[in-house]
Design a protein around this nucleic acid. Structure first.
Length: 648
RNA sequence: GCCUCUGUAGCAUAGUGGUAUUGCGUUGCCUUGGUAAGGCAAAGGUCGAGGGUUCAAAUCCCUUCAGAGGCUCCA
């Protein structure tokens, strides 16, 4: 019998007969593993457990702990979903496609029946049946002709097959039991029993192959876990995420409002929200002053010519609000601040001695976002941007850019944002949306790459995401509940300097074009605060809290004392409220908790007598006999240092 | 922009053809209390807007606005 050598996950080598499967190897290692195994990684490629190995190989057994194992399970769950729907509505479902994603799976299909979440229960029951039957899931390589016969009449599969033919790839199908088959590359788990518990989450629509010219299909999203408890935990997490939704909290905490009569994506900052906004703004102003930025202010509207120079017109016209006619000339509302800052640079003769010149502004910009893209504070049409442009020499560019990265890191660290990543977005060489000449692009890419590498920060390269005038770096931040956003975009720009004919006198006495760095570490107030609401679940650190301290009287007899205390806190620059209503303490506490006020003080007879307060923090801890002077001192320190937590 | 769904008082909700339910909040009165809801009462709604069907519309149909989940887009 021919023998092959397999290197096991622990590094040891063992001999097996030729044709051994991943499942058999898993069984030979340990019974627990045999059950948990979902797929196998063979020389770096993910395989089904049942696929025979005919050569020496190094393997690792994938379980639900591995993302690839999860994906095999989820993809199989997607097949079960398709299978169940074909069973329930025979002839009514034309299956298109369905992959596993990073957090579950979805299935796209075409059907004359309009599905609603009310159908989920029925489908889930059918899926549970299929899982209980523990049907084998078997991979088969078949010929193109066989495949064509098998999927005859399904235009989506036919399109897929003709593409496989073009690429010259092999056709693989997966059978679930005897009566369900789908065209699929896999990998899958070996039988439906391994999938465990499936939950359908939502219903949406999507264009076939993600192209808006194509037909829209119905899409069902789902998730699956082997362990019921894990599924429940996941569902709880989703519910928790919903509670943290900035739109919900924004309303509950009186942070912002979006009024129908004003328009979609146009934010009304309520007094509470405005405090957060101003605190952030002041922080950025102070910080950037220290980092050598100079502040400027520029208009919100401009003659159209400015955007022709920058080439935003006509290329980005559709993202701009329609122009208005002023004295027979077209004026646009600015979608960004860059050209204005360039004009400030150009307004005076510049020498290399003036560089780097860092111009910063809290600019109010408006962009015509697609109506369907607008969500809460995350995608808006009117925004305040913490924007700045650095004009420097080519020699300075790398270090300046590293400083920009450091500035981000400073901001994020202070706010306790630890989960972030960077993406270097380059141009897509096949697209014609990019401007400027080849040399300029290459140089800009090189400069950015150099800066990223020198800074030592991890980053991912993404093709096709660049701005039309240069590559960019996006900071992706993740909130505690796992929602990810682009918080800021930064660029080294060799294009606009030329377009705006910006010049400085160099050391050599000749004219040079400055390099421009675009940066906005806090992005827009809208998105950033939206993110922070979810990040902190509305429990802002003291310095950002709209109301920092509430003083609650046990009875209205303590009003005078309460008022005296309130004044003391207020004079110390602390945002404080006195709650002297004729309500019970439990009720006052409850309300303060719901408003997420970080410092709750109660005063009763004892406190008046001893001139102390009882301190309660949001986590429910109560400390009696606290001296107000000490508290004020500690709070001021906490606020000035912008600390994340308050401790006495 | 496209697809699907949703829209009832400040907020959260009940209501499948007979002009609207409940809770919180608000206001008033009583209560003056020790760490997540004290009691009673009152006010508050052209049921997103406009049109249509019908004796009668929150409810059915059309248009429109807004929101949600996606897709496309995202300088």
């Amino acid at each position: 019998m021919p023998i092959i050598k397999i290197q096991l996950p622990d590094g040891s080598k063992r001999e097996y007969r030729k044709g051994v499967t991943g499942q058999e190897i898993a069984e030979s290692i340990g019974t627990g593993l045999a059950k948990a195994a979902l797929a196998v990684k063979v020389n770096g490629e993910v395989w089904d457990l049942g696929r025979p190995m005919n050569n020496d190989a190094g393997i690792s057994i994938l379980t639900f702990k591995d993302q690839e194992g999860k994906k095999a399970l989820w993809h199989s769950a997607e097949h079960v979903l398709t299978h169940a729907m074909m069973n329930l509505w025979p002839g009514k479902i034309e299956m298109a496609m369905g992959p596993a994603t990073e957090e579950g799976f979805y299935f796209d299909f075409d059907s004359s029946k309009k599905f609603t979440p009310d159908d989920f229960k029925k489908i889930e029951e059918e899926m549970a049946k299929l899982v209980n039957q523990d049907l084998p899931i078997v991979r088969k390589e078949i010929s193109l002709d066989e495949a064509k016969k098998l999927f005859k009449g399904n235009k989506y599969k036919e399109e897929w097959l003709s593409e496989i033919k073009e690429k010259g790839e092999k056709v693989t199908v997966y059978w679930t039991g005897k009566d369900f088959v789908d065209l699929c590359r896999g990998p899958h788990v070996s039988s439906t029993g391994k999938i465990g518990h499936i939950k359908l989450l939502s219903l949406a629509s999507a264009y076939w192959r993600g192209d808006s010219k194509n037909k829209q299909l119905q899409r069902i999203y789902g998730i699956a876990f082997q362990d019921r408890k894990e599924l429940n935990r996941h569902l709880e997490m989703l519910a928790e995420a919903e509670k943290r939704d900035h739109r919900k909290l924004g309303k509950e905490l009186d942070i912002f409002e979006i009024d129908e009569d004003i328009g979609p994506g146009l934010v009304l900052w309520l007094p509470n929200g405005n405090i957060i906004k101003e605190e952030l703004e002041n922080w950025a102003k102070e910080t950037e002053k220290k980092w050598g930025y100079k502040r400027v202010t520029t208009p919100i509207i401009t003659k159209e010519g400015l955007f022709h120079t920058s080439e935003h017109l006509p290329h980005y016209k559709e993202s701009m609000f329609s122009p208005m006619d002023i004295d027979g000339e077209k004026y646009y509302i600015k979608p960004m601040n860059c050209p204005f800052h360039h004009k400030i640079f150009a307004a005076r003769t510049r020498s290399y001695r003036d560089l780097p010149l860092r111009l910063a502004e809290y600019g109010t910009c408006h962009r015509y976002e697609q109506s369907g893209a607008i969500t809460g504070l995350m995608r808006v049409r009117g925004m305040d941007m913490n924007d700045a442009h650095i004009y420097c020499t080519k020699e300075q560019a790398v270090d300046e850019f590293i400083d920009v990265i450091k500035l981000h890191e400073y901001y994020y660290k202070k706010l306790g944002i630890t989960d972030y990543s960077m993406e270097l977005a380059l141009r897509d060489l096949n697209s014609d949306k990019y401007h400027g000449h080849e040399k300029m692009w290459r140089e800009a890419e090189e400069l950015m790459m150099k800066a990223m590498k020198k800074s030592g920060v991890k980053f991912k390269v993404e093709k096709g995401g660049a701005a039309f005038y240069g590559p960019k770096i996006d900071f992706q931040i993740k909130s505690v509940i796992g929602r990810e956003f682009t918080a800021s975009t930064n660029q080294i720009d060799l294009f606009m300097g030329e377009k705006f004919k910006l010049k400085y006198a160099g050391e050599d006495g000749k004219e040079h074009t400055p390099v421009i760095i675009h940066r906005a570490p806090l992005g827009t107030h809208e998105r950033f605060i939206g993110f922070l609401i979810e990040h902190f679940a509305g429990k802002f650190p003291v310095w950002l809290s709209p109301v920092q301290v509430v003083i609650m009287t046990i009875s209205q007899k303590m009003e005078k004392h309460g008022e005296k205390l309130r004044k003391e806190f207020e004079e110390a620059g602390i945002r404080v409220e006195l709650d002297n209503r004729a309500e019970s303490i439990p009720k006052k506490v409850r309300e303060a908790q719901l408003r997420k006020i970080p410092i709750m003080l109660t005063i009763g007879e004892k406190e008046v007598e001893n001139d102390t307060v009882a301190l309660r923090t949001l986590d429910g801890q109560v400390k009696f006999g606290v001296k107000p002077e000490l508290l004020v001192k500690k709070l001021k320190e906490n606020i000035n240092n912008k600390e994340l937590k308050f401790e006495l």
